[in-house]
Design a protein around this nucleic acid. Sequence first.
DNA 1: CTCCTGACCTGAGTGC
DNA 2: TGCACTCAGGTCAGGA
Length: 277
Amino acid sequence: MPELPEVETVCLALSKILNNSRVRDIEIFRKDLRWNVKENLEKDLKEKILKKPYRRGKYILIPTSKKYILLIHLGMSGTIKIASKEYKVSKHDHFKINVENKENKFFSFVYNDPRRFGYVDFFHIKDIEKHFLLKKLGVEPLGNDFTIRYLQKKIYKKSRCIKNFIMDQSIIVGIGNIYASEILHRASINPLRTVDSLKKEHLKSIIDATKFILNKSINVGGTTIRNHLQPDGKLGYFAQKLQVYGKSKHNCNKCGNMINLIKISNRSTYFCSNCQI
DNA sequence: CTCCTGACCTGAGTGC
DNA sequence: TGCACTCAGGTCAGGA
């Protein structure tokens, strides 16, 4: 479900409300997420101060006191809800973190994930570089390391198609199945094209399109197609701005031709075969 | 090494 | 209503 803009949206919402709140306790309802939640999470997280959250790829990282990090991944269907004291636990809520802020007000945030492809972890900051989920991540697409030179190095003599390439989290983080289609449409590049056929100007278009699409989506709270909600319950409005994803049989907004739907690595891929070459 | 497939899991939608 | 089937925003492990 959530790609970079959705995770960023959640992160921004959390950073507005969490600032230096203290964890009173965590209630865990299911430990069998993508991996089993650590046995001592309840004990270790208790009384920690939650500092400013940030995002790395599709991971939410919340630094705490005593130099620990709380890591949350939303998988395919995860959401985080901000909840008041009266909140009733509902189906697929897997944990609920109860905190007290600096004004001594109590609230909670709740992790809900029907498919349980998500995960939560807690580890010392000294282990962050070698964390099994973080150590292989590629560059941030909105950062300064996402350059033509970097892409040239990564595509050299590679035969895979560009769509799989930009979705590969070890190369660029944060792009998933929706934004891959949107980015390649904006860049006018056919998703099936092999990466070693791409010239400098194509790489430039991909970089520009990526930054444009992701930033624009962040500005409207991400894309809600089925599950994604901002933590305050609001929808993400980028769904209304999608140009190709889910638009087979619609006309391309650039050239008027019909949008195609194909499968690439078993994932739905939308593109215009006329203007994406 | 590179790249793709299958598997993990639940729910929503479709067609008979 | 019920059943069988497909599909869904992710990504790791294993194998070609």
